[in-house]
């Protein structure tokens, strides 16, 4: 069963649906605007997949690992949409004394098992959890969300080799391939394209989909074989806000008031 009985329809107290993508986007932007922090672009590229995973895919037995920890905001919003983080907690994002840090810290929410943020750790953690569950005969799948830039870390490929060799069929690795990283496009910095083909060259099952399409994600997740599954989510950095889409600077910049108001208008949430 989903994490909350009707996770996709968790109300926000004003009668609207928190899991509505534009509603969730607006709340994510407000959270970052009020905290005066960036990392918005990669949050928006990953938000649709995280909303769907936490609202409609993961059940109580499943484990989620956010390896691209700089998308912590999208994770908090996805958990808020699923009804497991309340509105009050969101207001403490990035504040002194918070548990909602800029990159996830562990130990305060059952869906956030690992502190992440340094890239290249999540796949190995997820593989270890998947291995342990298999050894213990325990049910549930392990999902790990990485970024495309993160795949430049050698430890990612160590984990792919390990997961494939040990045939961890209870492991799903998702890659938010938005094509932009910290100081350039992934094709300019250290191109790994064709990313899916390179991963499948390691012997893993790979599916590439529109990373903003929940139906496509459902179809991809249904194609499980006898080993780990890799889903390459083709996404747009800054998705949903025209002046952010495909622009590297939104990896870093906070919103000013005019930008925030304009973004809300574009999302129909002004």
């Amino acid at each position: 069963m989903p994490l909350s009985p009707n996770a996709a329809a968790a109300p926000d107290g004003r009668g609207s649906n928190r899991a509505d993508p534009n509603r969730a986007r607006a709340r994510l932007l407000r959270m970052h605007y009020e905290a005066r922090v960036g990392h918005i672009g990669g949050n928006l590229s990953a938000l649709d997949a995280m909303l769907h995973l936490h609202g409609a895919v993961l059940d109580e037995r499943d484990l989620f690992v956010l390896s691209k920890g700089h998308s912590a905001g999208a994770l908090y919003i996805a958990l808020w949409a699923a009804g497991t983080i309340d509105e009050d907690e969101l207001t403490r994002f990035h504040r002194d004394g918070t548990t909602l840090a800029g990159h996830p810290v562990a130990g305060w929410h059952r869906r956030i098992v690992f502190a992440t943020g340094s890239l290249g750790h999540g796949a190995g953690l997820a593989a270890g959890a998947a291995l342990a569950r298999r050894l213990r005969g325990e049910p549930g799948d392990v999902y790990c969300l990485m970024s495309d830039g993160e795949c430049e870390e050698g430890s990612v490929w160590e984990a792919l080799i390990f997961a494939r060799h040990n045939r961890l069929a209870n492991l799903v690795l998702l890659i938010d391939a938005n094509g932009l990283q910290g100081f350039g496009g992934t094709d300019e910095v250290a191109s790994l394209e064709p990313l899916g083909a390179r991963i499948s060259g390691f012997g893993l099952d790979v599916i590439e989909i529109d990373g903003h399409d929940p139906t496509a994600l459902d179809a991809a997740l249904a194609r499980r074989g006898d080993g780990p599954l890799v889903v390459v989510l083709r996404t747009v950095k800054g998705r949903g806000v025209s002046f952010m889409e495909g622009r590297m600077e939104w990896h870093y910049l906070p919103l000013d008031e005019a930008q925030y108001r304009r973004a809300l208008d574009e999302l129909g949430q002004g």
Binding site: A123, G128, A132, R133, L135, R136, A159, I161
Partner: peptide, 28 residues
Amino acid sequence: GPRFINAGVAEQNMISVAAGAASQGEQA
């Protein structure tokens, strides 16, 4: 037996795997 795993020449992953397994209750 299956609880002895040669993780290969990949020490970074070996430690992450150990931590991930420990998160599920294993002593790794």
